[in-house]
């Protein structure tokens, strides 16, 4: 018989983005329900259900952030960090354009790397100021990139992996980087 278990990645995403106050209970409840469904239906159906619940939980989190007290402060904090990130990225772009010739491979590879590093740093800084504001920052990153790709600001169409980095990995880094940092910190404390 094949062994099966709840999707680890989905658990990790939920534990990374949900507030500390209820992440453990929420993921625990989902795992409980996963086992019930895996026994009553099939592990595959339960696995699909788990991922469905993970995707459905994210809009609820955004909505709850907008409704809870202090949402405006979080929004302002996220906006301030986002503006700083944009300034840093533009400065880096200027430096790259100045010192690297257009044909060089580094000019193609460096901007997405800088973008990801900036989003990770932005996420970590914001998490220290207001943990729950990171969702707003991820939304800013995603929405501005959607607008930029929609209006086609570049004369030459960017490669597909640029779009993937900007739309998926960028917002994901904002949310995941603080969680990784938190775990690394707690491990170093434990040692």
């Amino acid at each position: 018989m094949r062994s099966y278990s709840p999707p680890i990645l989905a658990c990790w995403i939920l534990e990374s983005i949900f507030p500390v106050s209820f992440r453990e209970a929420l993921v625990g409840d989902l795992i409980d329900e996963y086992w019930l469904r895996a026994r009553s239906t099939s592990p595959r159906a339960a696995w699909i259900w788990f991922w469905g619940e993970t995707c459905r939980a994210i809009p609820s989190l955004i909505w709850s952030l907008l409704r809870c007290r202090g949402w405006f402060t979080r929004l302002v904090a996220a906006l301030a960090v986002y503006i700083t990130m944009v300034i840093l990225m533009f400065s880096a772009d200027i430096v790259i354009a100045r010192y690297l010739s257009p044909g060089q491979k580094a000019q193609l590879i460096l901007p997405p790397i800088i973008f990801l590093l900036t989003t990770a740093a932005g996420g970590c800084v914001l998490a220290r100021i207001r943990r729950q504001a990171t969702m707003f920052l991820a939304l800013f990153v995603m929405s501005t990139n959607i607008v930029l790709f929609a209006v086609r600001i570049c004369s030459i169409p960017p490669p597909w992996w640029y779009q993937l980095t900007a739309l998926i990995f960028g917002p994901a880094t904002v949310l995941i980087a603080p969680a990784i940092l938190e775990r690394a910190n707690s491990r170093s404390f434990a040692i």
């Binding site: 949900f18 106050s21 209970a25 929420l26 989902l30 619940e53 609820s60 709850s64």
Partner: peptide, 25 residues
């Protein structure tokens, strides 16, 4: 969605309408 349930319960707890305690893992 379970996310909506927990987010709402959290809000209700903040308002003082519900209370919660942690049970054993």
């Amino acid at each position: 969605s379970i996310g909506a349930v927990y987010a709402t319960l959290e809000r209700l707890e903040e308002k003082g309408y519900v209370s919660s305690f942690i049970a054993e893992a």
